[in-house]
Computed example of a mutant assay.
Amino acid sequence: MNIPAELRYAATHEWVRQESDGNLTVGITDHAQEQLGDLVFIELPQVGKAYGAGQQIAVVESVKAASDIYAPVAGTVVEVNQAAADAPESVNDGAFTAWLFRIKPDNAADVQTLLDAEGYRKSVEG
């Protein structure tokens, strides 16, 4: 299972990368895309909309099921990856390169409340 050490993770299978401008790039983990199977549709959040931590923010649909994506921290969506929505299979091909959205956190320190790679590995293994 691919779990990059430099990222943070939500227990709900979102990965988070802190960018130099303070924004957070968010996608779904490799484990999540494996469990879902072939993705066929992605509904992205609305740019400019504020979300609370843990609030449903997006949806990914596969041939098996639809799954909600949750905001890993409270903040405002500043960008979405339309290329991922246009080609959902790109998330299957590279879960850690095909990000879904970028969020400006209300509190930058909130990212530290997320799981590190080892914590996420333990949560999915067991």
Rank of each mutant, 00 (worst) to 15 (best):
W99H: 07
P88I: 05
S20K: 12
A65N: 10
S67Q: 10
T12Q: 14
G27C: 08
V47G: 06
S62E: 07
I57H: 08
L100T: 07
E6M: 11
I57Y: 07
Q33V: 09
T12L: 12
G119W: 08
I103Q: 09
R17D: 09
D38Y: 02
A98N: 12
R121D: 13
I103Y: 06
A85H: 04
F41R: 06
V63N: 03
S20Q: 12
V91L: 02
I57S: 09
G126Q: 13
D110F: 12
A58K: 05
G22P: 04
S20F: 00
E6K: 15
L24H: 05
S90F: 00
K64L: 01
I42Q: 05
A58C: 07
H13K: 06
R17C: 06
G75F: 00
A87F: 11
Y51R: 09
V80P: 01
T113G: 14
N107W: 05
I57L: 12
D110V: 11
A10D: 13
R121W: 03
I3A: 02
G27S: 06
V78P: 01
G94W: 04
V80C: 04
H31A: 08
E79V: 06
E34F: 05
D30H: 12
A98C: 09
A50R: 15
G22I: 06
I69Y: 02
A74D: 04
A11N: 08
A66R: 08
L7N: 04
N2G: 00
E19V: 00
Y70F: 15
Y120N: 10
N2F: 01
P88R: 08
K64V: 02
Q46E: 15
E14H: 02
A53M: 13
K49D: 09
P72A: 10
D110H: 13
S123H: 13
F101L: 10
R121P: 06
Q56F: 00
I28R: 02
A108M: 05
I69N: 03
D38T: 10
T97I: 13
Y70T: 10
R8M: 03
K49C: 08
P45T: 01
A117G: 08
T113S: 15
D38V: 07
L115N: 13
A74N: 05
A108P: 13
V111N: 07
I103V: 14
L44N: 05
V60F: 02
G48W: 00
A109Q: 14
G27Y: 07
G54K: 12
S67R: 08
M1T: 07
E19G: 01
V77W: 01
G52Q: 15
V124P: 03
D86W: 04
I28H: 04
S90V: 05
M1Y: 05
P88Y: 03
E125I: 06
A109E: 15
Y70P: 11
T113L: 14
L7T: 01
I103F: 09
I69K: 04
P45S: 04
T25I: 10
E125G: 15
A71W: 03
